[in-house]
């Protein structure tokens, strides 16, 4: 999910590193060109390593922060079935965070180091999770639209050149696609429900539609990502290509629900066979990315609080483990 990291300014990269060995670089690129995988112990250019560290950890952070907007409705889920499925879904997201941190750890930084980057505000996560969830219908909209948009990004990542990331993505994609269908099923239920439920569904679409389109990142003409990610087969489709695929898949789904997309300029182009959308307000995207979205501060604060409140538990587990190995060593000595 959530690969907005690719849109960071590549000029910020450290340019002072020595040029990589040309022969190694050629072998590396040959592996990628042959659609084989780069594995953790293989030689890789520093820039490839840093791009992946950033992208995979941002993806992991997004899963973890993404638990919050849905967690907001967990204790108010309107039926026991919905309560159980929402709890299981949020649990899956924690699981995705775990696989992704594990994949990112193979690149040489610990999970703690990545988490510190999140908690200090240095690392980013997907902008979409800085929007509030105001009604139950948002649980449907997040599954249908946010997970739906994420899948568009993630399916190509199953073929990413970096082996541990690609393998993690295969499992994540299966679960995300289940979540997407669950979310859509919530929307179907609401859209066929009482007038109040239908209004709730429409309101959720109204609020989430544009922020979801922004999840794919800036338009190609404004995107700062270098050709490297494409050459390295980390990114296989451009932001606009993925956004278009998403729109083409989603409009018929929304129409089936009898809902209206909040874009008066939305039109179907018979010649191209694609839906065309109105102008995206990129100033809003920039504001949210810069930290001034509706919930940026609350989301980070909640994570910092959970981390701080759990510190004594983690300390206890470490202290107990140390005591136990001490006792085992002592009893071993006594036995000898």
């Amino acid at each position: 999910m959530y690969t907005q990291a690719l849109n960071a300014d590549e000029s910020q990269r450290d340019q002072t590193l020595p040029a990589p060995d040309a022969a190694k670089l050629a072998r590396f690129q040959a592996v990628i060109d042959a659609e084989d995988k780069i594995e953790p112990n293989d030689w890789m250019p520093d820039a490839y390593r840093r791009t992946l560290q950033r992208q995979i950890s941002q993806h992991a952070h997004s899963e973890i922060i993404g638990m919050q907007p849905e967690g907001n409705w967990l204790t108010r889920a309107p039926s026991l079935k919905r309560k159980a499925t929402l709890l299981a879904k949020i649990q899956d997201e924690a699981g995705h965070g775990l696989y992704l941190y594990s994949a990112a750890e193979t690149l040489g930084l610990s999970r703690e180091a990545y988490c510190d980057q999140l908690l200090s505000g240095k690392a980013k996560y997907s902008s979409i999770f800085n929007y509030p969830t105001l009604t139950w219908a948002d649980m449907g909209a997040i599954g249908w639209l946010v997970d739906g948009a994420a899948i568009m990004n993630q399916i190509p990542l199953c073929r990413c050149s970096y082996g541990p990331y690609a393998r993690a993505m295969i499992r994540i994609c299966k679960e995300e696609s289940f979540h997407q269908r669950q979310g859509y099923e919530i929307m179907v239920t609401l859209a066929h429900g009482t007038p109040a439920q239908k209004a709730m569904a429409q309101d959720a679409l109204d609020r989430f539609w544009w922020p979801v389109l922004m999840m794919f990142g800036p338009s190609d003409k404004d995107s700062m990502h270098s050709a490297d990610s494409t050459k390295w087969k980390i990114k296989r489709f451009s932001n606009d290509e993925l956004r278009q695929k998403f729109i083409d898949a989603t409009i018929p789904q929304g129409r089936y629900l009898g809902l209206t997309f909040p874009d008066p300029d939305l039109t179907f182009n018979d010649a191209t066979g694609h839906w065309e959308h109105g102008v995206i307000d990129w100033s809003e995207f920039k504001r949210v990315l810069a930290g001034d979205g509706p919930c940026n501060r609350q989301r980070l604060k909640a994570r910092q609080t959970a981390e701080a409140e759990g510190a004594w538990v983690r300390d206890a587990a470490r202290a107990y483990a140390a005591k136990r190995s001490q006792r085992q060593a002592t009893s071993q000595v006594a036995a000898e």
Partner: peptide, 13 residues
């Protein structure tokens, strides 16, 4: 369920 997202570690969550 009130612990969701607030566990002392990801594993414990």
């Amino acid at each position: 369920s009130e612990w969701s997202g607030r566990g002392p570690s990801l594993e414990e969550d």
